[in-house]
């Protein structure tokens, strides 16, 4: 790559002000997405992966707020932008594909009018030109019979076709970065496979960068170039996709991969004991420590800091180094 990354998230902390406390949904998270790269952000519910996505687009709603950190997109810090500037950027330079296309699309407008509106709002095209572009976009996402689909309403399309329409909308203004939050979770496995193929194809064709957020390790293995693993608001491991699957370093990543059913039918699965801690009750040390099979003395004291463990790899775990996380930037956030 060489050049500066397209997106640089630096020590992002997003908190939710609840009952007089600032609960860190995203806690000093740093990562980059390079031009043309797919970063897979993987985590379970409550890991902070979706709040990270909303933070990048500055769509976090109260009581949530970005408490500290920087989000540089093409060198500009999005955290410091005015809302008006941010609005111009959303959908045009960075767009979002949601999990549930039925709720993300407006049920009372046709697919065509929603696509045309996206183009018009960002000053890309109006009238006949917009309609022509809308047909082209639906064709690009391999919507069968695009001209006819333009006049249909979201409920007339299948789940897979709705997700295609949503992807067309996300691509309408030729954004540099698409954030896809669980884009295939609501879909059947054969449709999921088609949508993942489509995302890969769109990425290559339009030179996109993709931030793919999912809980599904299989989707990550098939789609991502690099992976960031989140747990309880913190980024615990980052690695190129091959390295992560062949040689996971963090005990959480290892446990997650080991818990997937494998080739030994009928045997007990290697389950992770316990449950993800709630934000209000994070342990003082590593958030995974209470569930960790490799826990030792330092784990319960302070959250581990980032340790480099090879080319493009970092992990937050005392098994791999004794770095300690600097104190939270927000008073009361930990």
């Amino acid at each position: 790559m060489g050049d500066a990354p397209l997106l640089e998230v630096e020590r992002l902390t997003t908190v939710f002000d609840v009952g007089g406390r600032a609960l860190p949904a995203v806690d000093q998270v740093s990562f980059t997405v390079g031009a043309g790269e797919t970063l897979g952000l993987v985590g379970e519910s409550g890991s902070g992966k979706s709040v990270t996505a909303l933070s990048i687009l500055r769509l976090v709603q109260p009581p949530g707020r970005i408490a500290s950190g920087r989000i540089r997109f093409r060198g500009r810090d999005l955290v410091a932008l005015r809302e008006r500037e941010m609005r111009a950027l959303r959908g045009a330079d960075i767009s979002l594909v949601f999990q549930e296309p039925m709720t993300a699309l407006n049920p009372v407008f046709t697919i065509g009018s929603q696509l045309e509106e996206t183009l018009a709002v960002h000053g890309r095209a109006t009238g006949h030109a917009a309609r022509r572009q809308a047909v082209d976009l639906l064709g690009a996402v391999r919507m069968p019979d695009p001209a006819r689909r333009l006049d249909e309403y979201p409920h007339q399309l299948s789940g897979g076709l709705r997700q295609r329409a949503l992807i067309a909308m996300a691509l309408a203004c030729r954004p540099a970065l698409v954030i896809a939050d669980e884009p295939t979770t609501a879909l059947d496995v054969t449709v999921q496979a088609e949508i993942l193929d489509l995302l890969r194809e769109m990425k290559a064709r339009f030179g996109l960068s993709l931030l793919l957020i999912t809980h599904d390790l299989g989707v990550i293995a098939e789609t991502a170039d690099r992976v960031a693993v989140m747990y309880a608001g913190r980024l615990v491991e980052q690695a190129p996709v091959r390295a992560l699957f062949h040689d996971p370093k963090h005990p959480y990543t290892r446990a997650l991969l080991a818990s997937v059913p494998d080739d030994r039918p009928g045997t007990p699965l290697r389950a992770i004991r316990g449950a993800v801690p709630s934000l209000g009750a994070l342990p003082p040390g590593c958030a995974f420590a209470p569930r960790c099979p490799d826990r030792f003395e330092p784990c319960d004291r302070l959250p581990p800091g980032e340790t480099r463990v090879g080319e493009g790899r970092a992990v937050r775990c005392y098994l791999h180094g004794d770095a300690v996380e600097p104190a939270a930037a927000v008073p009361g956030a930990r």
Partner: peptide, 9 residues
Amino acid sequence: DVSVQAQVV
């Protein structure tokens, strides 16, 4: 969640 699925299975 993935990490809880295995427990229930």
